[in-house]
Amino acid sequence: MEQIPASIWTLTAGVVITLISFWVGHNHNLLPEQASEQAPLVDDFFDIMLTIGTALFLVVQGAIILFVIRYRRRAGDDGDGVPVEGNLPLEAFWTAIPALIVIFLGIYSVDIFQRMGGLNPGDHAMHTMGDHNPAVAVVAAAPQTTATDAPPLLATKTNSVPEVGIGASPDVQGKMPDLVVDVAGMQYAWIFTYPSQGIVSGELHIPVGKDVQLNLSARDVIHSFWVPQFRLKQDAIPGVPTELRFKATKPGTYPVVCAELCGGYHGAMRTQVIVHTPEEFETWLSQNQTMAAIPSPSLVASHTAALGVTPQLLAQVAAAAQSPQPVPSSDHI
C-alpha cells in the first residue's frame, strides 16, 4: 500500500483546518450575551469544544470528499480497490487521539463544573438560618410562607436543604448568600418569594454582583428554571428541593424560560429576571415590601399575553398562585 501521505499537502491542510477551526471557535456568535459569573466559563468551554469539533468534522469531511473524488470508479473499470484490510499503527493512532481528547474534555469539564459551583450544592446549610428554618426553606416556596401552609411536598428526608443544583462557586464557598429567593414553579408561572423581605413577585428582581441563591420547588409537575444569559438551568421538581446559586454580572432584563415540558402552555411559561444596580434594587425592595404583593394575573404571566394564552388560563394561574394547595392531580382513588 502507499505510504500515508506525509507531504507538504497534509501539512498545509492541517494548518488551514486549524486556522478555520480556531476562527469558528471564536467567531461563531451562537451564544447569547453573558450575564452571570458562570456564563464565561461555559462559553469558553463551548468554544474549545466547537474548535475541536470543527477540526474533527473538517478532517473527516475533507477525507470523505477527497477520497470520493480521487477514488471514484472510472467508466469501464470493473476492478476492485486495493486489498487493504487494516493498518495497526493507523488504527492505534485514531483510537489514541480521540481518547486523549476525551480525557482532556473530561478533566476540563470537572474543572469548569467545580468553578461554576456545581460541586457544592447544599453548601449554604447554616446560612439560610437567619430568618428561615432550613428545613422549611424548601417547602416554603409557596407564596404564603408559613410552614403550615406549605404544601406537604415530601414527608421524608428530602425535607432538608437542596442537595441538587448549582451551589456555591469557590469564591463564596462557606459564605452566606447575599439574597435568598424561593422560586416555585407551577402550571404555568413562576412565583418568586423573598422570605426575608416578605415580597412575592411574578418576576425575579436581583441586584447585580451579589451572591444570589434560588431555592427551586414545584407545585404540580416538573418545571425547569432557565436563564439563557446566565447559562444556568435547573429543574424544579416536586418533592426534590433544588437550587441555583450565582452572581449576575450585568444589569438588564433577561428572559426566564421554563425548559421542561409541563403541559399545553409550557411554551408560555416565561417571565423575566431583572438585574438591578444595587441602588435600584433597594428602591424596588422598599416599594414592594410595603404592599403584601399577591401576584395578579397580569403580573404572573404578563409576558405571555401575545402567545395565545387565554385570559381564563391567566386567572387560573393567579388563583393557583394564591392557593396553598398543590394544583390538584388526578389521584382518582
Partner: peptide, 19 residues
C-alpha cells in the same frame, strides 16, 4: 464510535467507489 467512522473512511481510501 470514532473507530468505526474512521474505519469506514479508510475503507473508501484506494477504492473504486461507485456513486
Amino acid at each position: 464510535t470514532g473507530v468505526k467512522i474512521f474505519s469506514w473512511v479508510a475503507t473508501l481510501w484506494g477504492g473504486k467507489i461507485r456513486l
